[in-house]
Structures are given as C-alpha cells and as structure tokens.
Design a protein around this nucleic acid. Structure first.
Lengths: 146, 146
DNA sequence: AAACAACTATTGATATATCAATTATATATT
DNA sequence: AATATATAATTGATATATCAATAGTTGTTT
C-alpha cells in the first residue's frame, strides 16, 4: 500500500539528477575559465586512460560505467582534439588507448583544477556528512544497478 | 597547494553522476515493466504539469531545472504520445501546458510505481543517513549552481 | 502609429546516453 | 581447412543537455 506521493522538489532522485547536472555544468565552466576545453565526461575518460595507459575500449567503458558506444564517441572527440591516441594491438579488434603528449600535459594541468572543483561542491558539509553522502551514493548506485 | 588527487572510483562527483545515471536506467526499465513508456525526464515534466496545470514552458523549465530548449523537445515527444496538450493563451507567445486525459490516467498509474522506484534506491540506508543524503544533495546543488 | 526593446518558444549544432544492428577479427568445432 | 560462434568496436536511431540564433508577440517610448 503506497501511502504518499511527494512534490517534485522533495524527491531525492530529483535532487540527485539535478545535482549531477549542476556539477557537469559547473565543471565545464570552471575548466573553460582555466583554458581547459573538456567536458566532465571527456575528463573521466582522460583520467582513466592516464591511470591505465593502453587500456582498451571495452575495459575503459566498464571502468567508467559508460556504454561502449558512448566511449567510441567520446574518444572520437578527444582524438580530434589530439589528446588521445588509438593503436591496434596484436588482436586487431582491439585498440589500445593512450594519452598523447598533449593529453598528458592537459591531464597534469587539470588535476589540480579538478580537486578544486570537487572541494567547491562540498562546502558547508562536515566530514561526517561527506562520509555518509559518499556511502549513500554508493548504496543508491548499487540498488539501482543490481 | 593541492595535496592529493584520487582514483576515479573514489571521487564523489563520479559516484554522483554514476548514481544519477543508474537511477534513470532503473526507472526506465521499471516503468517499462509496468507498460509505462516514459523516461524519467518525461516523467518529471508530466508530474510538474500535473502539479500545475496550465503552466507555461518558461515556468516549467525553471521549476524542473531544465533548459527551455530541452522542455520544448520533451514536450514534442509527450505530445506525440498524446499525453500532453498545448494551448495558446491570450498572450500568443505563451502556451499553456496541460495533461491530456490519457496523460492524467498515466500519471495516476505511474505515481505508485514512482514511489516504489524511489524506495528501492534507498534500501540499506537508515533514515538518518537519508536525511543527510538529501541535505548533501541540496548543498552540492547549491554550491554548484551559485 | 512607428521604431525599438523585451520576452516566449523554436531550431540548429554539438555532446552524451541507450539500444540494436553491423563490421571486422579471433576462436572453437567439426 | 571450413563453418559457426564469440568478441571489439562502430554506426544509426532516438532522447536529452547546452548554447546561440531566430521567429513571433507584446510592450514601451517617443
């Protein structure tokens, strides 16, 4: 028996989606302000590739929880920006993904900005609240991806 | 001076975006399973219009934190599905948005499912944690939309 | 009233997401 | 070896997001 409905504003999933969207926009603007022309989704790819140079697209997609089709298209953009390089491995179905020199420089430059962006988002929250926040995000993700 | 960087997996904004995405997918599938063919974004529009029949697109966009252009396109889809009706008001720049009969029935049918979907996402969290979670989502949103 | 300014909605361009279908290659089976 | 199956990546279709430009209306100002 369902007891209640709620106004949109009070619904946590609404808040969740809204916060995620606001973050993406804020991040894009903050990076642009530093002359860094990448979206947060492109950044996720760049960061993961810098953590695991030579990773292939399937693994990359899995690691960042994106569809392989999305990864293909994000890589297209990053290759056009000359931040990423694709090389065929022995298995010619597979591409090894690496940062270009330019990509490496950009990642270096961006790391600090990314830290600042994250910090800005948490202002006004205690470390206990932040702990619980992260835990809740993980739990919600788990509940919704099972 | 930035002290540290972190692996993607540990970054809360990554968790945030990932949870939001997982929710959208889960919601879509759960609704589809009940024979309800709307995305969570379409649902947000339908819900808001049911809360404020006759609302115009500008107000609607503001209320649900979407770009007016996005609202136009979501409405296009909902009109094609015959769930929404647009009527011109006296001011002929403005459209009054209303649910169709079919839209009203769908909203009725969907409300309960939506409650269940939200509940599923919170399993394993205490009400204190949920309170803090909501507060954190609001704070992050505020920090990122200022 | 005419010219200009302000406002609502739409459209086009680009980025991303999902799903289904396709291509190319590799592996397994007979 | 030839055929069938599996895997990696791409592509096309549709939905949504942002931004910029435009179209249609209304309001203002002279």
């Amino acid at each position: 028996m369902e007891k209640f409905d709620a106004e949109l504003e009070d619904v946590y999933v609404f808040k969740l989606v809204r916060a995620a969207q606001a973050f993406k926009q804020y991040a894009y603007d903050a990076l642009a302000k530093k002359g860094i022309d990448v979206t947060s989704d492109q950044w996720v790819v760049l960061k993961k590739v810098s953590e695991e140079p030579g990773i292939n697209q399937r693994e990359l997609a899995k690691a960042i929880y994106k569809d392989p089709a999305s990864v293909t298209r994000i890589l297209d953009v990053l290759i056009k920006k000359e931040l990423i390089e694709k090389r065929q491995g022995k298995d010619r179905r597979i591409y090894e993904i690496r940062l270009s020199l330019r990509g490496e420089k950009l990642v270096e430059k961006t790391l600090g900005v990314a830290v600042d962006i994250r910090k800005s988002g948490l202002e006004g929250l205690s470390s206990e609240e932040i702990q619980i926040f992260k835990k809740a995000l993980d739990q919600v993700f788990k509940n919704y991806s099972g």
